[in-house]
């Protein structure tokens, strides 16, 4: 069931209260907020700032510092290409390129219809399976440019 905006803010408020409105818990709160809303829009950041009694600028500063946080909504299907060293030396750049060509997206972009987000990360720690791609949390190992077609075929 899709939650209403009001319900999502109520959930966030409860989480903040659980953490005693402590500004040292900002990163944990932002993780939770992103989990609830899917991303961290301006209103959510202002809401958190107000509850923690810190400036919105401080919240924004933290959101933009850490690569895990995003201010843009992500697509339904999030494709993460691992660009850690182990994957890189086994050809991860070619995997990323193939995704970019097939989806017509650059690394970090989301398609206009909000269906696909293509992004990269640095090491999931499954280096034995390099190169690795994660789609919505599911890991695909030993990828080749050819297996990119197969992976995308499963997520049409």
């Amino acid at each position: 069931m899709v939650k209403t905006n009001k319900e999502m803010f109520a959930e966030l408020e409860a989480f903040i209260a659980e953490h005693n409105n402590d500004s040292a818990e900002l990163i944990a709160i932002l993780h939770q907020a992103q989990h609830i809303f899917g991303y961290l829009p301006k209103e959510v950041q202002e809401f958190i700032a107000e509850r923690l009694k810190i400036s919105a600028a401080k919240v924004y500063g933290v959101v933009t510092f850490y690569s895990f946080f995003t201010m843009k909504p992500k697509g339904e299907i999030v494709i993460n290409v691992c660009l850690g060293t182990a994957c890189f030396v086994r050809g991860a750049d070619k995997i990323l390129e193939k995704f970019e060509t097939l989806l017509n997206l650059k690394n970090g972009e989301t398609s206009a219809d909000k269906k696909y987000t293509l992004t990269s990360l640095r090491c999931v720690g499954a280096c034995g399976l390099a190169p690795v791609v994660q789609v919505n949390g599911k890991t695909f190992g030993n990828c080749t440019p050819a297996s990119v077609d197969q992976i995308l075929g499963q997520y049409k």
Partner: peptide
Amino acid sequence: IKYGAGAF
């Protein structure tokens, strides 16, 4: 437990 958020 404290969480990082993707910053080397």
